[in-house]
């Protein structure tokens, strides 16, 4: 429990009221350890994204509690949640979600701006992370000048720039061809090898096979939780910046 980065206890998410009520999540409990690499699978509409958004503090649970890194997120106000999203979580979306007309390096350094990091340091750090995803050459390109795979790598660089405890990815390879998908997954594997905690939603079984643990969703429930490899086969997570 102490080592759990994510701790969900009987979390439910209910959309709508009365007749139109949808239980997207129905009393889900799950614990994810530091340094783990978890793949979430399940049919469309089974509640995967709903849980991911709650874990990423983009959305709140209707019932139940969520502890992130030991903090009960239900007690936090809007400003504190923004800080959590900024410092502790890196989010990668299926459709990249880069800010248009803004250079790759500026997209990547943006979370640091919200963390009030100095301008010069921000740029250095952003270039460093861009280089680590293999895009040093493309730093000054706008999103419209990049391929899908490159855009997703910029998005991953942006998610990693604040050195968060948690990397969340909702179908990160969903919009990419096989080659780009492999590049992204290789990147995830090396991040995991360096101790990063990763939670990734996917539809493809071969993608899921790269993870340590596979969790299957159905109708808002976890119906299968399957460990493929031991977490501690890899070195322990790097320190989180203060």
């Amino acid at each position: 429990m102490n080592d759990a980065v994510i701790q969900l206890d009987s979390v439910s998410k209910i959309y709508g009221k009365g007749e139109a009520e949808v239980r997207a999540l129905d009393s889900v409990s799950i614990s994810i350890d530091r340094g783990d690499f978890v793949a979430i699978i399940g049919a469309s509409g089974s509640g995967k994204s709903t849980m991911m958004n709650i874990i990423g503090c983009l959305d709140g649970a209707t019932q139940g509690t969520y502890h992130l890194d030991g903090i009960d997120t239900g007690t936090l106000d809007e400003f504190q949640l923004a800080q959590i999203r900024n410092r502790k979580i890196g989010f990668v979306f299926q459709n990249f979600n880069l800010i248009p007309r803004t250079r790759a390096v500026d997209n990547v350094s943006m979370p640091l701006a919200y963390a009030k990091v100095h301008r010069k340091e921000r740029r250095e750090r952003a270039l460093e992370v861009l280089a680590s995803v293999g895009l040093a050459e493309r730093a000054d390109h706008k999103p419209s000048q990049l391929s899908g795979g490159q855009q997703q790598r910029v998005a991953i660089a942006r998610a990693l720039v604040t050195n968060p405890v948690l990397l969340l990815a909702d179908e990160p390879t969903g919009a990419l061809d096989t080659k780009s998908s492999h590049e992204i997954l290789d990147l995830f594997e090396s991040l995991h090898a360096n101790g990063r905690t990763i939670v990734m939603i996917t539809h493809e079984t071969d993608v899921a096979a790269r993870a340590n643990r596979v969790v299957r969703f159905q109708d808002g429930h976890i119906i299968e939780d399957h460990r493929l490899r031991d977490v501690h086969a890899h070195p322990v997570a790097t320190a989180v910046p203060a």
Partner: peptide
């Protein structure tokens, strides 16, 4: 997007 990466209100 800005909110998701940590922009406050």
């Amino acid at each position: 997007i800005r909110k998701a990466i940590g922009a406050s209100r």
